[in-house]
Design a protein around this nucleic acid. Structure first.
Lengths: 145, 145
DNA sequence: GTAATTGCAAATACTTTGCCACGTA
DNA sequence: TACGTGGCAAAGTATTTGCAATTAC
Protein backbone atom coordinates (compact mmCIF):
# COMPACT_ATOMS: atom_id res chain seq x y z
CA UNK A 1 0.00 0.00 0.00
CA UNK A 2 1.20 3.46 -0.83
CA UNK A 3 1.75 5.79 2.09
CA UNK A 4 1.23 9.34 0.90
CA UNK A 5 -1.84 8.51 -1.12
CA UNK A 6 -3.84 11.67 -1.30
CA UNK A 7 -7.52 12.17 -1.88
CA UNK A 8 -7.31 12.56 -5.64
CA UNK A 9 -5.58 9.25 -6.05
CA UNK A 10 -7.97 7.49 -3.73
CA UNK A 11 -10.89 8.82 -5.71
CA UNK A 12 -9.34 7.73 -8.97
CA UNK A 13 -8.74 4.23 -7.68
CA UNK A 14 -12.30 4.22 -6.49
CA UNK A 15 -13.59 5.14 -9.92
CA UNK A 16 -11.44 2.41 -11.43
CA UNK A 17 -12.84 -0.13 -9.04
CA UNK A 18 -16.37 0.87 -9.95
CA UNK A 19 -15.49 0.48 -13.61
CA UNK A 20 -14.57 -3.11 -12.88
CA UNK A 21 -10.77 -2.86 -12.70
CA UNK A 22 -9.02 -4.84 -10.03
CA UNK A 23 -7.02 -3.06 -7.42
CA UNK A 24 -3.52 -4.24 -8.09
CA UNK A 25 -0.24 -2.82 -6.94
CA UNK A 26 0.69 -2.00 -10.53
CA UNK A 27 -2.51 -0.04 -11.05
CA UNK A 28 -1.96 1.94 -7.88
CA UNK A 29 1.62 2.79 -8.67
CA UNK A 30 0.70 3.79 -12.19
CA UNK A 31 -2.05 6.10 -11.00
CA UNK A 32 0.24 7.65 -8.40
CA UNK A 33 2.96 8.19 -10.99
CA UNK A 34 0.57 9.79 -13.46
CA UNK A 35 -0.95 11.96 -10.75
CA UNK A 36 2.39 13.16 -9.52
CA UNK A 37 3.66 13.89 -13.00
CA UNK A 38 3.14 17.46 -14.06
CA UNK A 39 3.14 16.48 -17.70
CA UNK A 40 2.07 13.63 -19.95
CA UNK A 41 4.47 10.68 -20.02
CA UNK A 42 5.37 8.03 -22.57
CA UNK A 43 4.93 4.33 -22.02
CA UNK A 44 8.66 3.97 -21.72
CA UNK A 45 8.99 6.79 -19.21
CA UNK A 46 6.28 5.23 -17.12
CA UNK A 47 7.65 1.70 -17.30
CA UNK A 48 11.13 2.85 -16.27
CA UNK A 49 9.98 5.32 -13.63
CA UNK A 50 11.03 4.91 -10.01
CA UNK A 51 7.67 3.61 -8.89
CA UNK A 52 7.05 1.20 -11.73
CA UNK A 53 10.40 -0.08 -12.95
CA UNK A 54 10.78 -2.77 -10.34
CA UNK A 55 7.07 -3.14 -9.93
CA UNK A 56 5.95 -4.53 -13.25
CA UNK A 57 6.66 -5.23 -16.86
CA UNK A 58 6.29 -2.73 -19.68
CA UNK A 59 3.55 -4.87 -21.21
CA UNK A 60 1.61 -4.56 -18.00
CA UNK A 61 1.89 -0.80 -18.02
CA UNK A 62 0.79 -0.85 -21.64
CA UNK A 63 -2.28 -2.91 -20.86
CA UNK A 64 -3.14 -0.81 -17.84
CA UNK A 65 -2.97 2.33 -19.94
CA UNK A 66 -5.12 0.62 -22.52
CA UNK A 67 -7.78 -0.27 -19.98
CA UNK A 68 -7.65 3.14 -18.37
CA UNK A 69 -8.09 4.75 -21.80
CA UNK A 70 -11.09 2.61 -22.60
CA UNK A 71 -12.74 3.79 -19.43
CA UNK A 72 -11.80 7.39 -20.08
CA UNK A 73 -9.46 7.73 -17.10
CA UNK A 74 -6.43 8.25 -19.27
CA UNK A 75 -5.98 9.98 -22.58
CA UNK A 76 -3.43 9.27 -25.22
CA UNK A 77 -1.80 12.33 -26.72
CA UNK A 78 0.17 12.71 -29.91
CA UNK A 79 2.83 15.28 -29.18
CA UNK A 80 5.02 14.99 -32.25
CA UNK A 81 7.38 12.54 -30.71
CA UNK A 82 7.55 9.09 -32.06
CA UNK A 83 6.20 7.69 -28.83
CA UNK A 84 2.68 8.36 -27.58
CA UNK A 85 2.10 10.31 -24.39
CA UNK A 86 -0.42 9.48 -21.71
CA UNK A 87 -2.10 11.72 -19.21
CA UNK A 88 -4.62 11.22 -16.46
CA UNK A 89 -8.04 12.73 -17.05
CA UNK A 90 -9.39 14.27 -13.90
CA UNK A 91 -12.89 15.69 -13.64
CA UNK A 92 -12.87 19.46 -14.08
CA UNK A 93 -9.28 19.50 -15.14
CA UNK A 94 -8.05 20.34 -18.59
CA UNK A 95 -4.57 21.19 -19.76
CA UNK A 96 -3.05 22.62 -22.86
CA UNK A 97 0.67 22.29 -23.32
CA UNK A 98 3.68 24.33 -24.32
CA UNK A 99 6.36 22.22 -25.92
CA UNK A 100 9.92 23.05 -26.93
CA UNK A 101 10.68 21.47 -30.28
CA UNK A 102 14.37 21.63 -29.51
CA UNK A 103 14.81 20.12 -26.04
CA UNK A 104 11.42 18.43 -25.90
CA UNK A 105 10.33 19.97 -22.62
CA UNK A 106 6.61 19.87 -22.00
CA UNK A 107 4.79 22.12 -19.60
CA UNK A 108 1.11 22.63 -18.93
CA UNK A 109 -0.38 26.04 -19.65
CA UNK A 110 -2.36 27.54 -16.82
CA UNK A 111 -4.17 30.19 -18.82
CA UNK A 112 -7.87 29.60 -19.30
CA UNK A 113 -8.44 27.60 -22.43
CA UNK A 114 -9.95 29.75 -25.17
CA UNK A 115 -11.46 26.92 -27.15
CA UNK A 116 -14.57 25.97 -25.24
CA UNK A 117 -16.91 28.22 -27.18
CA UNK A 118 -15.76 26.85 -30.51
CA UNK A 119 -16.06 23.37 -29.08
CA UNK A 120 -19.70 24.04 -28.20
CA UNK A 121 -20.37 25.34 -31.70
CA UNK A 122 -18.83 22.28 -33.26
CA UNK A 123 -20.85 20.00 -31.02
CA UNK A 124 -23.99 21.83 -32.09
CA UNK A 125 -23.22 22.17 -35.80
CA UNK A 126 -21.69 18.81 -36.61
CA UNK A 127 -23.48 16.42 -34.30
CA UNK A 128 -20.21 14.97 -33.05
CA UNK A 129 -20.52 13.18 -29.72
CA UNK A 130 -18.06 12.89 -26.85
CA UNK A 131 -16.23 15.90 -28.12
CA UNK A 132 -12.98 17.03 -26.55
CA UNK A 133 -9.98 18.89 -27.81
CA UNK A 134 -6.28 18.92 -27.64
CA UNK A 135 -4.29 22.13 -27.91
CA UNK A 136 -0.54 22.39 -28.00
CA UNK A 137 1.85 25.23 -28.60
CA UNK A 138 5.21 24.44 -30.11
CA UNK A 139 8.27 26.63 -30.27
CA UNK A 140 11.85 27.11 -29.15
CA UNK A 141 12.19 27.78 -25.44
CA UNK A 142 14.44 30.58 -24.15
CA UNK A 143 17.11 28.13 -22.99
CA UNK A 144 17.42 26.59 -26.44
CA UNK A 145 17.21 29.85 -28.39
CA UNK B 1 6.27 17.82 -65.86
CA UNK B 2 2.89 18.00 -64.25
CA UNK B 3 0.10 19.43 -66.37
CA UNK B 4 -2.42 21.03 -64.09
CA UNK B 5 0.13 22.65 -61.87
CA UNK B 6 -1.54 25.65 -60.40
CA UNK B 7 -0.06 28.83 -59.03
CA UNK B 8 0.13 27.66 -55.43
CA UNK B 9 2.19 24.67 -56.34
CA UNK B 10 4.48 26.63 -58.58
CA UNK B 11 5.11 29.08 -55.79
CA UNK B 12 5.83 26.30 -53.34
CA UNK B 13 8.30 24.68 -55.70
CA UNK B 14 9.87 28.07 -56.14
CA UNK B 15 10.29 28.49 -52.42
CA UNK B 16 11.82 25.03 -52.21
CA UNK B 17 14.28 25.86 -54.94
CA UNK B 18 15.32 29.02 -53.10
CA UNK B 19 15.82 26.97 -49.97
CA UNK B 20 18.32 24.86 -51.88
CA UNK B 21 16.22 21.81 -52.66
CA UNK B 22 16.60 20.27 -56.08
CA UNK B 23 13.66 20.15 -58.38
CA UNK B 24 13.07 16.45 -58.75
CA UNK B 25 10.04 14.66 -60.04
CA UNK B 26 9.47 13.11 -56.65
CA UNK B 27 9.46 16.51 -54.97
CA UNK B 28 6.98 17.88 -57.46
CA UNK B 29 4.62 14.96 -57.16
CA UNK B 30 4.81 15.08 -53.39
CA UNK B 31 3.98 18.78 -53.31
CA UNK B 32 1.10 18.28 -55.71
CA UNK B 33 -0.25 15.42 -53.64
CA UNK B 34 -0.04 17.38 -50.41
CA UNK B 35 -1.60 20.43 -52.02
CA UNK B 36 -4.49 18.48 -53.45
CA UNK B 37 -5.15 16.65 -50.21
CA UNK B 38 -7.76 18.29 -48.05
CA UNK B 39 -6.32 16.74 -44.95
CA UNK B 40 -2.96 15.73 -43.49
CA UNK B 41 -1.60 12.42 -44.75
CA UNK B 42 0.63 9.73 -43.33
CA UNK B 43 3.93 8.70 -44.85
CA UNK B 44 2.35 5.46 -45.94
CA UNK B 45 -0.65 7.15 -47.53
CA UNK B 46 1.67 9.44 -49.43
CA UNK B 47 4.04 6.72 -50.57
CA UNK B 48 1.18 4.58 -51.86
CA UNK B 49 -0.82 7.43 -53.39
CA UNK B 50 -1.58 7.48 -57.10
CA UNK B 51 1.00 10.12 -57.89
CA UNK B 52 3.84 8.75 -55.81
CA UNK B 53 3.50 4.99 -55.69
CA UNK B 54 5.16 4.33 -59.00
CA UNK B 55 7.25 7.43 -58.79
CA UNK B 56 9.53 6.75 -55.86
CA UNK B 57 10.38 4.72 -52.83
CA UNK B 58 8.88 5.25 -49.39
CA UNK B 59 12.31 6.17 -48.06
CA UNK B 60 12.48 8.97 -50.59
CA UNK B 61 9.12 10.33 -49.52
CA UNK B 62 10.31 10.10 -45.94
CA UNK B 63 13.45 12.07 -46.67
CA UNK B 64 11.59 14.64 -48.72
CA UNK B 65 9.16 15.19 -45.88
CA UNK B 66 12.11 15.48 -43.53
CA UNK B 67 13.75 18.16 -45.66
CA UNK B 68 10.50 19.99 -46.20
CA UNK B 69 9.91 20.01 -42.44
CA UNK B 70 13.35 21.39 -41.75
CA UNK B 71 12.63 24.29 -44.05
CA UNK B 72 9.18 24.81 -42.58
CA UNK B 73 7.26 23.88 -45.71
CA UNK B 74 5.70 20.87 -44.11
CA UNK B 75 4.56 20.19 -40.59
CA UNK B 76 4.36 16.91 -38.83
CA UNK B 77 1.23 16.39 -36.80
CA UNK B 78 0.52 13.92 -34.06
CA UNK B 79 -3.11 12.96 -34.44
CA UNK B 80 -3.38 10.02 -32.04
CA UNK B 81 -2.79 7.46 -34.70
CA UNK B 82 0.29 5.40 -34.52
CA UNK B 83 1.58 6.94 -37.71
CA UNK B 84 2.52 10.61 -38.03
CA UNK B 85 0.59 12.92 -40.32
CA UNK B 86 2.09 15.53 -42.61
CA UNK B 87 0.59 18.69 -43.97
CA UNK B 88 1.79 21.46 -46.21
CA UNK B 89 2.29 24.83 -44.56
CA UNK B 90 1.09 27.62 -46.80
CA UNK B 91 1.58 31.28 -45.94
CA UNK B 92 -1.58 32.73 -44.40
CA UNK B 93 -3.19 29.37 -44.06
CA UNK B 94 -3.90 27.63 -40.80
CA UNK B 95 -6.12 24.69 -40.07
CA UNK B 96 -7.52 23.04 -37.04
CA UNK B 97 -9.01 19.60 -37.38
CA UNK B 98 -12.06 17.63 -36.38
CA UNK B 99 -11.32 13.95 -36.03
CA UNK B 100 -13.61 11.00 -35.51
CA UNK B 101 -12.06 8.62 -33.02
CA UNK B 102 -14.17 5.80 -34.37
CA UNK B 103 -13.75 5.85 -38.16
CA UNK B 104 -10.65 8.03 -38.18
CA UNK B 105 -11.99 10.65 -40.56
CA UNK B 106 -10.15 13.95 -40.48
CA UNK B 107 -11.58 17.21 -41.69
CA UNK B 108 -10.31 20.74 -41.46
CA UNK B 109 -12.34 23.26 -39.48
CA UNK B 110 -13.15 26.45 -41.27
CA UNK B 111 -14.13 28.53 -38.27
CA UNK B 112 -11.70 31.26 -37.32
CA UNK B 113 -9.16 29.91 -34.90
CA UNK B 114 -9.74 31.24 -31.38
CA UNK B 115 -6.23 30.70 -30.16
CA UNK B 116 -4.21 33.51 -31.66
CA UNK B 117 -4.58 35.85 -28.72
CA UNK B 118 -3.39 33.25 -26.24
CA UNK B 119 -0.55 32.46 -28.61
CA UNK B 120 0.54 36.10 -28.56
CA UNK B 121 0.42 36.14 -24.78
CA UNK B 122 2.54 33.04 -24.55
CA UNK B 123 5.05 34.47 -26.98
CA UNK B 124 5.28 37.57 -24.83
CA UNK B 125 5.29 35.91 -21.42
CA UNK B 126 7.53 32.94 -21.97
CA UNK B 127 10.03 34.11 -24.56
CA UNK B 128 9.38 31.11 -26.77
CA UNK B 129 10.43 31.66 -30.39
CA UNK B 130 8.90 30.33 -33.60
CA UNK B 131 5.68 29.68 -31.80
CA UNK B 132 2.82 27.90 -33.49
CA UNK B 133 0.00 25.79 -32.29
CA UNK B 134 -1.92 22.71 -33.13
CA UNK B 135 -5.57 22.31 -32.25
CA UNK B 136 -7.65 19.21 -32.77
CA UNK B 137 -11.14 18.22 -31.77
CA UNK B 138 -11.86 14.55 -31.22
CA UNK B 139 -15.22 12.89 -30.97
CA UNK B 140 -17.61 10.41 -32.53
CA UNK B 141 -19.03 11.56 -35.85
CA UNK B 142 -22.77 11.27 -36.62
CA UNK B 143 -22.22 8.33 -38.96
CA UNK B 144 -20.46 6.31 -36.28
CA UNK B 145 -22.75 7.29 -33.42
C1' DG C 1 32.14 17.50 -62.30
C1' DT C 2 30.16 17.77 -57.81
C1' DA C 3 27.04 17.38 -54.40
C1' DA C 4 22.33 16.38 -53.54
C1' DT C 5 19.07 12.79 -54.16
C1' DT C 6 17.41 8.07 -54.71
C1' DG C 7 16.43 2.93 -54.22
C1' DC C 8 16.93 -1.06 -51.80
C1' DA C 9 17.69 -3.50 -47.88
C1' DA C 10 18.78 -3.64 -43.20
C1' DA C 11 18.44 -1.68 -38.60
C1' DT C 12 15.84 0.68 -34.98
C1' DA C 13 12.06 2.18 -32.18
C1' DC C 14 7.78 1.73 -30.32
C1' DT C 15 3.69 -0.97 -29.78
C1' DT C 16 0.98 -5.00 -29.46
C1' DT C 17 -0.11 -9.90 -28.70
C1' DG C 18 0.14 -15.09 -27.14
C1' DC C 19 0.37 -18.03 -23.61
C1' DC C 20 0.48 -19.72 -19.27
C1' DA C 21 1.12 -18.49 -14.30
C1' DC C 22 -0.80 -15.76 -10.64
C1' DG C 23 -3.70 -12.87 -7.58
C1' DT C 24 -8.04 -10.48 -6.53
C1' DA C 25 -12.78 -10.74 -5.56
C1' DT D 1 -13.20 -21.05 -7.77
C1' DA D 2 -13.29 -17.90 -11.68
C1' DC D 3 -11.83 -14.51 -14.21
C1' DG D 4 -9.16 -10.40 -14.60
C1' DT D 5 -4.22 -9.46 -14.48
C1' DG D 6 0.84 -10.16 -14.89
C1' DG D 7 5.48 -11.65 -16.89
C1' DC D 8 8.19 -12.96 -20.61
C1' DA D 9 9.18 -13.43 -25.13
C1' DA D 10 7.92 -13.02 -29.80
C1' DA D 11 5.56 -10.62 -33.50
C1' DG D 12 3.87 -6.48 -35.71
C1' DT D 13 4.04 -1.79 -37.51
C1' DA D 14 6.20 2.63 -38.38
C1' DT D 15 10.37 5.03 -38.82
C1' DT D 16 15.11 5.74 -39.84
C1' DT D 17 19.73 4.85 -41.79
C1' DG D 18 23.87 2.91 -44.83
C1' DC D 19 25.65 2.69 -49.08
C1' DA D 20 26.26 2.52 -53.85
C1' DA D 21 24.03 4.30 -58.03
C1' DT D 22 21.86 8.13 -60.14
C1' DT D 23 20.51 12.86 -61.24
C1' DA D 24 20.13 17.96 -60.96
C1' DC D 25 22.66 21.95 -61.32
Amino acid sequence: MIQSMNATIKETIDRCRKAGLRRTKALEELLVTLTESLRPMTLNELATSARLSDQCDKATVFRLLQRLSEHGFVRRLGLHERAAYFTLILPNKHSDYLICTSCGSIEPINAPCPVHQLEDEIRKNTGFRNLYHELEFFGICPKCA
